[in-house]
C-alpha cells in the first residue's frame, strides 16, 4: 500500500508539473500579462513599471525559476481585482464550491443508482424505457440552459425558490439539481448496463440455483459487483466537477464559489487569481485521485498491488 501511494503521488507530481509548464507557457510566452492585465489606455511607462514589478522583464528561464519557486511556497501573488493574496481569495471561495459539488453529486448518486438498477430488472420494459429516455435527455441538455429554464419555471414563474445567490437551503436546490442532471444521467446509464451485465453472470445463476430470492440476488450479489465500475464513474464525476465544470452552474446562479470567481477574474483580467485557482484545483485533483485509488483497493479485493 505504501509503495502504491508513493507511485500515485509521483504521478500526481507530474500532473502538477505539467500544469505549471502549461500555465507558464500560456501566460508568459503565448500571452503577455501586461497586455491582458493593464487597461488599453496604459502608457508605455506604466507597462514598463508593471513588468518590472512582477519581474516580467527578466529572461524566460529566470522567470520560470522564480515562478516555480513562488508556487512551491504557495505564493500565487496578489489578486489585482481583490487587492489581497490570491490564495486567500481561493481558500475563501473553496467551501462554497465543495458544498455545491457535494450536494449535487450526492443527489445524482442517490437518485441515479436506484433508478438505474430498477431499470435493469426488466430491460426494455416500460420503466426501463422511461429511465433510458430520461438519461438521454439529461445527457443532451446543456447545463447552462437547464439552469436558466429551472430559474424561469421555479424561481420566476412559480416563485418557490430564489433566483440566484447562496445562503439558505432554498438557494441550494436549483444549482444542485442543475449540476446533478448530467452526472445523474451518466450514472443511471452505467448502473443499468452494469446491473444487466451482472445479472447475466454465472455467479448470479448459481445464486438463483441455491434458492436465493430475487431481491437478495439483485442487491446482495449483482449490485455489489455492478457498483465497482459505478464508483469509478462517481469518482470521475467528482473530479470533472472539481476540474471546473461547476463554472457554468456557478455563473448561471451567481453561486459565490471558485468557478464564479474564475469567471470574475477573467472579466477583471486578474490573471494571478485565475492562476491560483487553476493550481489549487490541480493539486485537489491529484489528492482526490489518490484518495479514490486507495478507496477502490479497499472495496475490491481483486485489485492487486501493482
Amino acid at each position: 500500500m505504501g509503495t502504491f501511494i508513493l507511485r500515485r503521488s509521483l504521478q500526481g507530481f507530474l500532473v502538477v508539473l505539467g500544469v505549471t509548464i502549461v500555465v507558464f507557457v500560456a501566460t508568459r510566452m503565448i500571452g503577455d500579462p501586461a497586455q491582458v492585465m493593464l487597461p488599453l489606455s496604459a502608457t508605455d511607462a506604466q507597462r514598463a513599471a508593471f513588468e518590472q514589478q512582477f519581474g516580467l522583464d527578466r529572461p524566460l528561464d529566470a522567470q520560470f525559476i522564480s515562478f516555480v519557486g513562488d508556487l512551491m511556497r504557495f505564493d500565487f501573488g496578489e489578486s489585482l481585482w481583490q487587492r489581497r493574496a490570491a490564495l486567500e481569495v481561493v481558500l475563501e471561495k473553496l467551501p462554497k464550491t465543495l458544498e455545491l459539488i457535494g450536494v449535487g453529486l450526492l443527489l445524482a448518486t442517490v437518485v441515479g443508482i436506484p433508478l438505474g438498477a430498477l431499470a435493469a430488472v426488466r430491460p426494455d420494459g416500460l420503466f426501463d424505457r422511461v429511465v433510458v429516455g430520461l438519461s438521454l435527455t439529461g445527457l443532451s441538455v446543456p447545463q447552462f440552459w437547464l439552469g436558466l429554464l429551472l430559474i424561469m419555471v421555479f424561481a420566476v414563474g412559480l416563485g418557490w425558490v430564489p433566483t440566484f445567490g447562496s445562503g439558505s437551503l432554498a438557494h441550494m436546490i436549483l444549482p444542485a439539481i442543475t449540476l446533478a442532471v448530467p452526472s445523474m444521467a451518466r450514472i443511471m446509464m452505467l448502473v443499468r448496463s452494469s446491473v444487466i451485465n451482472e445479472l447475466n453472470q454465472q455467479y448470479v445463476r448459481t445464486a438463483k440455483a441455491r434458492g436465493m430470492p430475487f431481491g437478495r440476488v439483485l442487491f446482495q450479489h449483482a449490485m455489489r459487483n455492478a457498483l465497482v465500475p459505478v464508483l469509478t464513474l462517481v469518482g470521475w464525476e467528482v473530479i470533472s466537477a472539481w476540474a471546473g465544470y461547476t463554472v457554468v452552474v456557478e455563473t448561471v446562479f451567481a453561486w459565490p464559489g471558485l468557478g464564479f470567481t474564475a469567471m470574475k477574474a477573467i472579466n477583471h483580467s486578474d490573471l494571478f487569481l485565475l492562476q491560483a485557482i487553476v493550481f489549487v484545483v490541480a493539486v485537489g485533483i491529484v489528492l482526490v485521485n489518490i484518495g479514490l485509488d486507495v478507496l477502490f483497493k479497499l472495496i475490491d479485493p481483486r485489485i492487486k498491488e501493482a
Partner: peptide
C-alpha cells in the same frame, strides 16, 4: 488529470 475547463 488536468483541470480541464479551468485551463481552457
Amino acid at each position: 488529470a488536468f483541470p480541464g475547463l479551468l485551463l481552457t
